[in-house]
Design a protein around this nucleic acid. Structure first.
Length: 633
RNA sequence: GGGCCCGUAGCCUAGCACGGAUCAGGGCGUCAGCCUCCGAAGCUGAAGAGGUUCGCCUCAGACACCGAGGGUUCGAAUCCCUCCGGGCCCGCCA
């Protein structure tokens, strides 16, 4: 987009000026000025030059500015340059040209900054909720982070496979099966309850409580685990049925949140695929694992711990692989260190973006799509697993040089519950917050949060639109609920713990998702009400000289830069911040100038064009973080 | 014991990845304004305590010196070191 062009022009011109002044080649650092009155872009190059030559930074700035001035006639988007005595060069944009090109690129060429399909191929894994319970808000943080990342990566022209790993053979699933088969808990939820919610809230917690007083039940758990791992027989088949029912409910929640996937990877199939044996063999031949013949790990295959250098068990003395070990074949498959043993079937269900969802199978598969073998794999997994992920990465590196740089763990801090919210759930806690726990029943389900948000939103929407039908209110309220939750989970630094408070999350004002959706709708309604086509020509572009207008167009032309930053740091939050900044710039513009009521037809048309373009960009940026749009709310 | 992350006003948060320009941006909460005119889910402004004959008076304070302290630097919220506080991880559990 145009701001990058402007930036590139500035960089070029400064480098050229420094060269002809005999300063040699300098690194041109560019940054936004601290105060908009300084200009649109700042360059600190004179300070660097001054450090080398011993001159005063301000003097260098004056000299460079003088030299640059001579180059300006050949520039498209640089309006002016002024030196600052601190050694900065401040550049302004040549707004009429810049405005015209930026706005019309959006309106005429539908250029939203997407990059050509020239990126890399990625496998992004996220969500990964054990199929024994409903999603809670902590899972939602994972989903929102991963799904937004996928959207942004695709926007930037990358080939992305969104993977959702289904751990259908773990202890958590076994617990639910134990409840149904050995505690006589009915496998039908009470009227009106979702099956996943029922399994998590009622069955799973009940079984775990029972374990404490009933040691024999633990034996049933290992029995179920063995049966599931075997993959055949009555219990295994029953478990498959239960898992499928839970998964279907979980996916409906994921889709409700706007996420979509390309593939469901079943752990049971991974285990039966024979991949582990292949990888284990490779590890042995590369000398990455060692069979201990004495000591406490006697009979186990171990690798050195990346942190302490101590031993880390990979294969138990009974020959079974530990949890991390399962990740090794999966990771290897993702980045193509092993052939693809899977076939793929279509998984029934309609995803929000219409993409087809596939599911791994070991029975050939009816589709000829292929997955795995990406250049880079990104796993969105909470930071607690950093240590284990490092082990996986280290093993991969041992198998193939450079592999660890193609296997990236995108960690994030978890979501905890505020004291007030925990208390509402019937838990008295000690500190200010408490970590969620499925076993203790201390968590807040996504569905329940969404329904509360929706209720609140519906109330407000009805108030504002008394004449609209219920379906309208319902649709808008749902969108606002999703917007509120996604934005709240995304806007925060992933390295910071989120203390979730139900009451707090019901806030729709200020820096929230609904604010963004509102701003978008507000802009679209202006266009609807205007009843005339936006039109921006040379004359109109000259008339757009209010600072609010210029701020708005400058901001909107930086969307691709926000995406680049999000990609570089694997942090979709950059896009969330951009959307918010743009919304603020729009509201500032809205308060500052009149659009429909402007008497000058040319200026009115130009402002309409600006409203149109900037709102489309806002809409596009919201799509990239999965915040749903409505042209009216 | 080893490792990772966090610590910015009453509360929440941005800025840290490349150290710079005058008040370190926002939001929430509180108070006061702005809809006969493009959507008020928005925008603007304010913010010590006590007393009061309601005009002022008295005291306090110059509205986050970025957890504390050092160091590097012309310059540090940002880089380095130490410490303090909080969280997490280090199983032949998953």
């Amino acid at each position: 987009m145009k701001f990058l062009d402007f930036r590139a022009e500035v960089a070029k011109v400064v480098a050229k000026a420094c060269l002809s002044l005999g300063y040699g080649s300098v690194e041109v650092e560019l940054s936004p000025p601290p105060n908009p009155s300084y200009g649109d872009l700042s360059c600190a190059a004179p300070i660097r030059v001054a450090q080398r030559t011993g001159e005063k930074p301000g003097d260098v700035a004056v000299k460079v500015a003088g030299e640059v001035s001579g180059l300006l006639p050949g520039c498209k988007y640089i309006g002016s340059i002024s030196p600052h005595r601190g050694g900065f060069l401040n550049f302004t944009i040549a707004y009429p040209r810049f405005l015209l090109d930026s706005v019309n690129a959006v309106l005429d060429q539908h250029d939203f900054g997407e990059r050509p399909q020239a990126g890399k191929s990625y496998a992004v894994e996220h969500t990964n909720v054990n199929p024994n319970k409903a999603l809670h808000v902590g899972h939602a943080r994972n989903l929102v982070l991963g799904d937004s990342l996928v959207r942004i990566m695709r926007y930037l022209g990358n080939q992305v496979q969104a993977l959702n790993y289904i751990d259908d053979s773990g202890a958590q699933v076994a617990d639910v099966i134990v409840g149904f088969r050995f505690l006589g808990i009915p496998d039908v939820p009470p009227e009106g309850a979702k099956f996943d919610v029922y399994c998590g809230d009622s069955v799973y917690t009940k079984v775990n409580k029972e374990y404490l007083s009933n040691p024999q039940l633990k034996e049933k758990q290992s029995l179920v685990l063995r049966e599931i791992e075997k993959g055949s027989g009555d219990i295994a088949e029953y478990a498959t049925g239960i898992v499928n029912r839970i998964l279907a409910d979980q996916l409906s929640t994921c889709w409700r949140l706007g996420a979509s996937y390309d593939l469901l990877n079943w752990e049971s199939q991974l285990l039966h695929s024979g991949m582990w044996a292949v990888m284990f063999g490779k590890m042995k031949s590369k000398g990455l694992v060692r069979l201990e013949t004495q000591g406490e790990n006697e009979g186990c295959w171990v690798i050195p711990d990346p942190e302490t250098g101590e031993q880390k068990v990979l294969v138990r003395s009974d020959g079974t692989a530990v949890y991390v070990a399962k990740d090794i074949p999966y990771a290897s498959w993702k980045i193509g260190l092993i052939g693809d043993p899977f076939g793929y079937d279509v998984y029934q269900g309609e995803q929000p973006d219409g993409r087809r969802l596939y599911s791994t199978t070991l029975e050939g598969g009816k589709s000829d799509v292929r997955f795995g073998g990406a250049q880079v794999a990104i796993s969105v997994i909470d930071s607690k697993q950093r240590y284990l992920q490092r082990i996986v990465s280290k093993v991969l590196e041992g198998l193939e040089e450079g592999a660890s740089s193609r296997y990236i763990h995108r960690g994030y801090e978890v979501v905890a519950l505020s004291r007030a919210t925990a208390s509402q759930l019937g838990h008295d806690i000690e500190g200010e917050y408490a970590h969620m726990s499925g076993r203790k029943g201390l968590y807040v389900n996504v569905d329940s949060v969404l329904s509360r948000l929706k209720e609140r939103a519906a109330e407000e929407t009805r108030k504002r639109n008394p004449e609209q039908p219920q379906a309208f209110v319902d649709d808008v309220a749902e969108a606002l609920a999703v917007a509120a939750l996604r934005y709240e989970l995304l806007k925060q630094d992933p390295d910071k713990l989120i203390v979730f408070d139900v009451e707090e999350s019901l806030r729709f004002q200020g820096d929230t998702g609904p604010y963004l959706v509102y701003t978008y709708a507000r802009a679209r309604r202006i266009l609807e009400r205007a009843g005339e086509r936006p039109a921006l020509g040379e004359g109109g572009a000259v008339k757009l000289r209010a600072p609010q207008e210029r701020n708005l167009v400058r901001k909107m032309s930086m969307m691709d830069m926000a995406a680049d930053a999000a990609m570089e740091y694997l942090s979709p939050r950059e896009m969330a911040k951009f959307a918010h900044d743009l919304a603020v710039a729009f509201n500032d513009f809205y308060e500052g100038v009149q659009v429909i009521r402007e008497a000058d037809a040319e200026l009115r048309g130009a402002r309409l064009a600006l409203v149109d373009a900037s709102s489309l960009i806002l809409g596009r940026s919201l799509e990239l973080i999965g915040v749903p749009l409505r042209s009216r709310i």
